[in-house]
Design a protein around this nucleic acid. Structure first.
Lengths: 235, 235
DNA sequence: GACGTATTCCATAGAATCATGGAATAAGAG
DNA sequence: CTCTTATTCCATGATTCTATGGAATACGTC
């Protein structure tokens, strides 16, 4: 009887390891992170991650086996999405742990120009006060899945030919998928080269939603998670 | 330049995967969980986990390579400990995710008699009000590394011959390492069989310290993390 | 029902992980 | 300096993971 109990108690580590194994591969982590931006089809994910299609499919199935993602069919395509809001939060926790524990992450943060806490604070305050033009440079499907309130949607690859849409004489703050996504930084480089006053916010969607500024207690309000578009227009 | 940035950004998933790989094996998770109770030597860990010594050593080295644990020498033995408080918190987050996402965990929780939220609330309130005898049945070294305030230390394997130390006519609440540790439950079975009014608390050390009762905001105060004993008495 | 598209399934080969047991190392005891 | 103890190192075989490309399946269109 006691032996039964002990065996059972040990079994729970195998369940945890099931999730651990899902997190043990950089491609799967990349896919998981992409899915934090919203639901996507296998093909889209494969292209965004730069991974062969069959390979992507297999990795997604492993994530599904670990119950971190779910899928459903829509016409001929299979749409994957995070199984739960808590999966996204957990991913952020993993990333946070890596930042605390792995010194290699510091070099990355340097290259990607992570902001200091007070700098970020100031930027968020200016955004909230609507003193700057907030620019979302992610692909527009991701914008539609959810974005920061008041943001202008101009995907990075359309930015050069849509510069006219950005108000002149006003500082621009660009954001993208998060601190390890280079898109906002690239956008700022482009904007600066054509004369804009531009900076990047090193948090993206959905990270800002969960961001707790030091000294405050509640998560930032007002993130419009525009109802996730499960239905994709035919192309 | 932009390609550099992108390559760099992708590299960060490899760092996350380093931690993921460390979590991909049930034995390593078991060792990590044991280390949440306090620093321990390789041999002690091997015995507690029921794993061959060389095997234990290898797994510990992998955890160290992922920077989740650290080690230092003390005389002829090597003492491992969690690298950081945040590692313990992250472990709890992983366990929490598994509880939310993996239905298999429910059966375990049933067998191990996890309490309902309100039941646990009530129990914690009674403990705080000192209406019950709080009993810590973990090995005494773990008690010394940190325990709940006011707890009586009687390790499970000494319980039968030390029954006299427990006040009669007062309800006893036993706790151990956490919700998936069977020791408290076994203690309650033993106590009940000799006439005690006994129940178990399904949170242990250090989980109670981080437990946020629903509706309250702050973590419970008053956990005495008696300065971690790095120095072990010779035997 | 034939065709094109999106995805999964399957077989294969190469790489990584794992448990085991014997040898090497380091520290203390006599 | 020898002996014991605690741990790590190393080599081995068994298992699992991973990427790849071709075949099979499912769905929608014509």
């Amino acid at each position: 009887m006691d032996n039964d109990l002990r065996a059972l108690a040990l079994a729970h580590y195998s369940n945890l390891a099931r999730i651990g194994r899902a997190l043990a591969n950089p491609i799967r982590l990349r896919l998981l992170d992409l899915l934090r931006q919203g639901p996507r089809s296998v093909e889209t994910l494969a292209e965004a991650a730069g991974v062969a299609l069959t390979n992507t499919s297999q990795h997604l199935q492993q994530l599904r086996a670990a119950r971190l993602v779910e899928s459903h069919k829509e016409g001929q395509r299979v749409i994957y999405r995070l199984a739960d809001e808590s999966v996204s939060a957990f991913f952020a926790a993993l990333r946070g742990l890596a930042e605390v524990r792995l010194p290699e992450m510091d070099r990355l943060r340097g290259a990607l120009k992570t902001l200091a806490d007070d700098e970020r604070e100031e930027l968020l305050a200016r955004i909230e006060a609507d003193e700057v033009t907030l620019l979302d440079v992610r692909p527009s499907e991701e914008f539609q899945s959810g974005h920061l309130p008041g943001a202008l949607c101009i995907p990075l690859n359309e930015l050069r030919r849509r510069l006219a849409e950005i108000p002149k004489g006003r500082e621009v703050v660009a954001y993208c998928r998060g601190p390890y996504c280079p898109m906002a930084l690239e956008a700022v480089n482009l904007l600066a080269s054509v004369g804009f006053q531009a900076r990047h916010l090193d948090l993206g969607f959905p990270d800002v939603a969960a961001y707790r500024p030091r000294g405050r207690k509640a998560p930032r309000p007002g993130v419009s998670a525009t109802s996730v578009s499960r239905r994709r227009k035919a192309k």
